[in-house]
Amino acid sequence: MIAALLLLAAYLVGSLSGSLLLGRLRGVDIRTQGSGNAGGTNALRTQGWKFALGTVLIDVGKGVLAVGLALWFGDGLAWLPWAAGFAAVLGHVWPLFHGFRGGKGAGTLVGALLVLWPVAVPVLVGVWLLVLTATGYVGLSTILAAAGLVPLALLTDGESPRLVFAAVLALFILFTHRSNLARLRAGTEGRFDRVRLWRRLRRGAA
């Protein structure tokens, strides 16, 4: 019963969408703008960096809170904090309080990892930055960064809950970014050309 309540609490915490809560204060719903997604990237493109920063802080913070609650009140169940992290990501993607239309889960995943597996966060961010500065595609960067959790779990002899969490979240992030992959195949995916540092370095060298 305690485990079920904590997982429900994690989902409800995850359902508190940063961009949609801040959007209510501004009188906007970013799901009607840009890509239509309620995540940090669309917040940046449509509302500016301050709004996007607030969105990311809330979305990361709810991942931290959901896992923290499971650790504090979970009676030492080893799998429960990992399951709570996933429940928070589910809440972010399908938020109860916002018509089940949320973001894609990356920010909340980072928040969960900060508590569950902090050494993975620099690796995750490093892969994300590497791909982003090479391609300019945020969605592709997020997919590959999440996929990198699986070999990291294997290389660090992760216990079973960590490996399962890494595999499930890598697949789930791939699922939530399926529209990005479709646009990549069609050649219509938006990109941040300003951050393509590798291209600038190649041009400078030439």
Results as ranks from 00 to 15, higher is better:
Trp198Arg: 03
Ile143Gly: 09
Ala182His: 09
Phe51Trp: 08
Ala182Pro: 02
Leu152Arg: 01
Phe86Met: 12
Leu21Val: 14
Thr142Ser: 14
Asp193Glu: 15
Arg196Thr: 04
Leu130Gly: 07
Arg185Ser: 14
Val115Ala: 14
Gly61Leu: 13
Val150Leu: 06
Ile30Gln: 05
Trp49Ser: 15
Trp128Leu: 11
Gly136Ile: 05
Ser17Cys: 08
Val150Thr: 00
Leu77Phe: 12
Ser35His: 05
Trp117Lys: 00
Leu184Asn: 11
Val164Arg: 06
Arg191Lys: 12
Gly99Phe: 00
Thr142Ala: 13
Ala206Cys: 09
Arg31Gly: 07
Leu109Tyr: 02
Asp193Ser: 14
Ala205Thr: 09
Ser179Trp: 14
Trp79Lys: 09
His177Asp: 03
Ile143Lys: 03
Arg45Gly: 10
Leu113Gly: 02
Gly187Lys: 04
Gln33Thr: 10
Leu152Pro: 06
Arg196Asp: 09
Arg194Asp: 12
Ile173Ala: 07
Gly187Trp: 03
Val121Asn: 10
Arg101Ala: 05
His92Thr: 04
Val28Ser: 13
Ala182Gln: 15
Ala153Gln: 04
Asp157Gly: 15
Ala205Ile: 08
Val125Arg: 00
Glu159Leu: 14
Asp193Pro: 07
His177Ile: 04
Leu155Tyr: 03
Gly18Gln: 13
Ile143Cys: 08
Ala205Pro: 09
Ala4Cys: 10
Val60Trp: 13
Val93Met: 06
Val67Phe: 04
Gly23Phe: 02
Trp94Ile: 00
Gly107Trp: 10
Leu53Asp: 03
Gly85Ser: 07
Phe86His: 10
Leu57Met: 13
Leu96Cys: 06
Trp94Gly: 09
Ile58Asn: 11
Trp94Thr: 01
Gly68Ser: 12
Ala146Val: 12
Leu65Phe: 03
Thr133Leu: 14
Phe97Gln: 09
Pro151Val: 02
Val121Phe: 08
Ser35Glu: 03
Leu152Ser: 07
Val60Glu: 13
Gly34Lys: 05
Gly190Ser: 15
Thr135Trp: 04
Thr135Ser: 01
Gln47Gly: 06
Ala66His: 08
Val67Glu: 00
Ile173Tyr: 03
Ala84Ser: 02
Leu57Trp: 11
Val121Tyr: 09
Ala4Trp: 02
Phe51Ser: 02
Leu6Ile: 01
Leu181Cys: 05
Trp128Thr: 13
Asn42Lys: 13
Asn42Pro: 01
Trp117Ala: 00
Gly34Leu: 11
Gly48His: 04
Gly158Arg: 14
Ala112Asn: 08
Asp59Leu: 03
Val121Asp: 12
Gly139Arg: 09
Gly136Lys: 04
Ala134His: 11
Leu90His: 09
Arg185Asn: 07
Phe51Gln: 08
Val89Phe: 01
Val131Thr: 07
Gly136Thr: 10
Lys62Leu: 10
Ser15Glu: 03
Leu163Lys: 13
Trp79Gln: 04
Val127Arg: 05
Ala167Asp: 03
Lys50Ile: 15
Ser15Thr: 02
Glu189Gln: 02
